[in-house]
Amino acid sequence: MTKLFATRWALVATLTMLATPAISAQQDDGAPPPSKPGKPINAGEVLSGELNTMKVRDVKNVGKRVATYQITSEPRRLPPPSGLCNLETGPETFQLVPSGDAQAAQLKTFAGKEISVKVDEIACASDPGQMSEAVITKWSLIKKQ
């Protein structure tokens, strides 16, 4: 019985010695400091980034798939009261809501490319069907010279 106890004790001691450096290494791994919040974006300012197209199911017309447009950009802070949208650095993905078929067709031609839009109305995403962190409801496309 003493031999069994001594064997188990040696095993526990060995495992403890092996685990202690690993735990301290995890704590001191030199993790980067938390990112600073992005610069603010207000109505009338320009947002630039890559335009992505996604097919999502329409909340109103259950089962119908609709194209959703999203700009991926650097983190930005929204005007109060939205602020950082419950994120440390602010949203990086912005859903563009076309106001009609003309704007939707305009976006379709720029899928996968860098675009710039003038933001007129922006808010944090709040509906379950929204695929982005923030939603731009009023905007206009800026043509590159």
Rank of each mutant, 00 (worst) to 15 (best):
S116I: 08
K143L: 11
R57C: 08
K64E: 03
A111R: 13
T20G: 01
V56T: 14
A43F: 07
W9Q: 12
V66L: 10
P75G: 03
A22F: 14
E88G: 03
T109Q: 10
A22Q: 12
A125K: 00
S73C: 05
L15Q: 01
P75Y: 02
T53R: 15
A10N: 10
E74M: 11
L15C: 04
F110Y: 14
L18T: 05
G83Q: 02
V117H: 02
P79N: 05
K118I: 11
Q130A: 09
F110P: 01
R76P: 07
Q103N: 05
V12F: 15
T72G: 02
G129M: 05
G100T: 04
K36H: 06
K138N: 12
A6W: 09
I142F: 02
R77V: 08
G63V: 08
D28T: 10
P91D: 02
S116V: 09
S35H: 10
K138Y: 11
E50L: 02
L84R: 10
D127N: 10
G49M: 06
P37F: 08
I122P: 01
D58H: 13
M17A: 14
V66I: 15
F5V: 07
I41H: 04
A10V: 10
V119N: 05
T16I: 01
M54L: 15
T89V: 06
N86L: 07
R65M: 15
R8T: 08
M17D: 00
W9G: 04
E133A: 13
S99H: 07
V117W: 01
A125H: 00
E50R: 09
S82I: 01
L47R: 06
P40L: 12
L18C: 08
S82E: 12
L141N: 00
A105R: 15
E92K: 14
K143M: 11
A6D: 13
A25Q: 11
F94Y: 08
T2I: 12
S48W: 02
K3A: 06
D58I: 09
T53M: 14
G63Y: 07
G83I: 02
A25L: 11
A25S: 12
D29T: 09
D28E: 05
M17T: 02
S24W: 14
Q103K: 10
D28M: 07
T68I: 06
S99Y: 04
R57H: 11
K3S: 06
F94E: 01
E92A: 07
D28H: 13
Y69I: 01
Q70G: 00
K64H: 03
Q103A: 13
F94G: 02
